[in-house]
Design a protein around this nucleic acid. Sequence first.
DNA 1: TTACCTGCAAAGGGTTTGCACTTTG
DNA 2: CAAAGTGCAAACCCTTTGCAGGTAA
Lengths: 144, 144
Amino acid sequence: MTSRENALREAFHGAGRRLTAQRRLIMEVLEESEGHLDAETLHDRVRARNPGISLATVYRTLAVLEDMGRVEKHSLGEDHSHYETVRDAPHYHFSCLGCGRVIEFDAPEVARVIRRLGEQEGVQVTEAHLTLSGYCARCREVRR
Amino acid sequence: MTSRENALREAFHGAGRRLTAQRRLIMEVLEESEGHLDAETLHDRVRARNPGISLATVYRTLAVLEDMGRVEKHSLGEDHSHYETVRDAPHYHFSCLGCGRVIEFDAPEVARVIRRLGEQEGVQVTEAHLTLSGYCARCREVRR
DNA sequence: TTACCTGCAAAGGGTTTGCACTTTG
DNA sequence: CAAAGTGCAAACCCTTTGCAGGTAA
């Protein structure tokens, strides 16, 4: 048993949950992938290695992981959600309306906005999404 | 016929569409409301004045208005969308996870982020959503 | 052993659509 | 009058859930 797996087990156990083969695999695929998977794509990739896993389990696991703070759910303007593992630096998304490509970027300015909102309105911000959309360089070219 | 209504008619006509009683009313209610209506709430308010209007027409009209650039659709983290008329200043949203209250705010910093992304990645941004969530002053109190 | 977890299939909830009828321009 | 719009109900799609059978701890 790798220490990596042990840490994962601890994380689940600490949250009063169990580490199952399905959950381990889902977490693995999520971490390998470059973020922004939707549930169906994730399900497909997971099934490629373990055909038995159901879409329901994928959704349930995503909910658990979100609850544990290990996964974030994003609404990128489509009719379904995208998921990605939580990393250190907060980051945001641009999605191309032409080809669907997603570009990640950081924006330290957002922290300032959050601070100001807290001061002015007394709110406590727990989540921040900055989602831009438009056309990537390639698609701008095509549209011309 | 007011000049206001005339302008609305022009707007529809210019887009190759017709101004109907339903569309006029839906637009009216949207403009009177303080933004962020979901389709069902909008439908309710519209039906209060014209009971015959269907939810399908509300959705179809919202799509048309969005297409005309007069309405924006927002994903505020819930399982359904919210709509509001487009106003001059761009603005963003904080929504309270406790009570659902939505606070609007401006954030000039976003323009800078967009400019930078354009320079660095060559993208053209056509839409920007900054959506914060957390707890408003009142709900923070309760949770303590 | 016993909670917890899974797969399956069915149900949910928001949104869209086919169709016959009505209305706008 | 032709094209566009509407109401209704059914269809859709993503997501959630009830249940009976597994499985981690």
